[in-house]
């Protein structure tokens, strides 16, 4: 009998997803679309915040949204009021979005009619961290009602994001949320991370966040031009 032989592979296990995400990113850049995604645990206020952001950013540029959930089209119905070009991705039992789901959802869209595409991931702080969706900018959300130690419990998702948003700031007092500790924990798992404080209810921070997203559009366009 032959002896065992070691065959080197040295390949990323999620290579297929990474390759697809890379080709999506090229397509988005060529069409002049900035892609912004949001990840968080369920119930952290992604959809409510996104409604406000869509309305504000949508005053200046053409916005669209993809929203992922295991089931129901409720979130898409909500977002459609502010962004008519919205599509729900229902994943069934899958706990995250992947590049293939994004590609399929965009099949009948004319990307050159969109300036900023928002992607709301399935509410989950674990699995989405492994999957690149081809986005330019990934935000991780942490609500004031969840507790300050979320970054320490889920460091990986904070590490795959480009910036963090603390939501439900209007409830911070009632929840005895230690804002300073939350900032410290975020900086511990991701040194230098930019953090926004937002309340969709009072409107706090929505302008600042919207302006930041707009400014990234210019950054991404000049990067493509070069």
């Amino acid at each position: 009998m032959n002896r065992p032989r070691l065959v080197e592979v040295r390949e990323n296990i999620l290579k297929q997803n990474d390759l697809l995400a890379r080709s999506l990113r090229t397509r988005f850049h060529e069409a002049g679309v900035l892609v912004v995604s949001f990840v968080s645990s369920p119930g952290s206020g992604k959809t409510t915040m996104l409604e406000k952001i869509l309305a504000r950013v949508g005053e200046k540029v053409r916005v669209a949204a993809l929203v992922g959930d295991l089931a129901t089209e409720n979130d898409a119905a909500r977002l459609m009021r502010t962004a008519p070009q919205t599509k729900q991705i229902t994943t069934g039992t899958v706990c995250h979005l992947d590049a293939h789901m994004v590609e399929s959802a965009l099949e009948d869209w004319e990307l050159n009619k969109v300036d900023v595409l928002f992607i709301e991931n399935v509410g989950n702080l674990v699995c989405p961290s492994s999957y690149d969706l081809g986005e330019d900018l990934r935000f991780v959300l942490l609500s004031a009602t969840e507790g300050e130690d979320k970054p320490l419990k889920y460091p990986t998702i904070f590490n795959t994001a480009d910036a963090a948003i603390i939501t439900k700031m209007d409830l911070a007092g009632a929840a005895e949320f230690d804002l300073e500790l939350a900032h410290r924990n975020i900086q511990s798992v991701r040194p230098g991370m930019r953090v926004f404080e937002v309340s969709a209810k009072t409107g706090k921070g929505i302008d600042e966040l919207s302006s930041f997203i707009q400014s990234q559009r210019l950054v991404s366009q000049s990067a493509t031009a070069v």
Partner: peptide, 21 residues
């Protein structure tokens, strides 16, 4: 010193396979 410049730790790699032909 804090640093966000991660060199290793994100690996999810199929390194090798041991086969008997």
């Amino acid at each position: 010193t804090p640093s966000p410049e991660i060199v290793h730790g994100r690996e999810l790699e199929l390194r090798a396979v041991e086969l008997v032909e």
